[in-house]
Amino acid sequence: MAVAFRDLFGRRDAARHQGIAAQVTSLMQGWSIEITAKQAAKLERIPLPRGTRVNIAFLPDEQPSAIEQTAARLVYERMVPVPHVPARTLPSHEALDSYLRGLAAVGVREALVIGGGAATQQGPFASSMDVLRTGLFQELGFTRIAVAGHPEGSPDIDAHGLAGALADKNAWAIETGMNVEIMTQFCFDAAQVVKWEEAIRLAGNRLPIRIGLPGPASIKSLLRYAQMCGVGNSLSFLSKRAGNVLQLVTAAEPDGFIVDMSKAVGSDGDNLVAGLHFYPFGGFEKTAHYAAAVAEGRFQVESDGQGFTVTA
């Protein structure tokens, strides 16, 4: 019996969309998210699935005790807290020791060690490697460490310095046997991220990578955060979309980025991208709901296969 062209093409489209959906849900497994102590304090309940990794940002005006309290709450609510440890913000070896011991005491076993955004070095630590080399993480029973990745470069260190730092972190992971992963700044251009991942892999990186991206937010908010964080290419990308005031208040969702990353990871067996990390610039609860829905497959792939719409 003859098959109508429209039926044949429709079946092909359905199969293609199913393939895209499978790639997206695969990449979204084990997603993580960022929170601040102030955000957590406003929530009656942390609206996340059990076992979700939650990075706790250490803001410039934050007190270590607030981070520790937030971490303790996350442990109690069956999440996995990943507090930031900002090297240049720490005033002394004693401050680092006290902070990490306080975290370990409430059940923290993971951390994100970063240089930190302080304009001037506050104490003896100039870089994340200075903190890692203290040996405190091994002594206190930490099992997993994340370090920063910069697909678009960093305003604090040049390309040569970034390459050296990444090589040092790979070497430290081998020397210590610690489970180490890279967690990147947020980006909007998947092609740029894919190019960067391949470049650092060819240069010797063997650490798995968690790609940072913003959750749903207005373009105005995304522009503000891109400018604050010095994400140059992303700022340029967003500026082209913000041609008028109406567009500035338009909500932007990261579905296109997620689809592009999913396709790239699915087509390259050597790719080291291991998951996604959400920055909730448009609100923590909104981002948490969005990420959980996508990970559970509650979305519809768009007809052109370039994005999707969350359905519940």
Rank of each mutant, 00 (worst) to 15 (best):
Y290W: 13
E175Y: 00
S98G: 05
Q306F: 02
M183I: 05
A37L: 02
G102Y: 13
T287A: 03
I258Q: 05
W196E: 02
T309R: 11
G117Y: 04
L238F: 14
R50E: 15
V24P: 04
K195Q: 15
L59Y: 11
A242W: 08
A37Q: 11
M178L: 13
A252E: 10
A264C: 09
L246Q: 12
W31A: 13
K220E: 13
E34A: 03
G135M: 08
N179Y: 10
T70D: 03
A291E: 09
A66E: 13
L112N: 00
A264R: 05
G305K: 03
A217W: 08
D255A: 13
V194K: 08
A4E: 15
Q300L: 14
L238Q: 01
P280Q: 02
P91E: 04
R88W: 02
S65F: 03
F188K: 10
V259A: 03
L59C: 07
G305L: 06
L100K: 11
M261L: 15
A312N: 14
S239P: 06
S32L: 04
A163S: 14
L132A: 06
G164T: 10
Y279W: 14
H289I: 08
A288P: 12
F257W: 09
Y76Q: 15
G230Y: 04
N205I: 05
G161Y: 12
L27N: 09
H150V: 00
Y99A: 10
W31P: 10
N233I: 11
A274Q: 09
P214M: 07
N233Y: 07
G283H: 07
F257S: 03
G102L: 13
A292V: 07
G243W: 07
L100G: 14
Y290A: 04
V273C: 11
A264F: 05
A291D: 09
R73Y: 06
D168R: 05
V80W: 01
L235Q: 13
P155C: 11
E198W: 04
D168V: 01
A312F: 09
A126Y: 03
A95C: 15
A148R: 00
G305F: 01
A242D: 10
R6K: 13
T89S: 14
A251T: 13
G283D: 03
G30H: 02
F237M: 08
M129E: 01
H84T: 02
A71G: 14
N170F: 01
Q227K: 14
D7V: 08
T134S: 09
I211P: 05
V245I: 14
T311K: 07
Q247C: 10
Q69L: 12
M129W: 00
H84M: 09
Y290V: 10
P91Y: 01
V80P: 10
R12I: 01
A226M: 08
N170T: 06
G123A: 07
F186M: 11
Q185L: 02
T309P: 06
H277T: 00
A105H: 15
L8S: 08
V180G: 01
L43D: 08
N205G: 06
V193A: 00
M28C: 13
G164M: 10
P214V: 10
G177F: 03
L207T: 01
R144H: 14
L272N: 07
V113M: 01
T70I: 05
Q227M: 09
G305N: 12
A291I: 09
M178S: 12
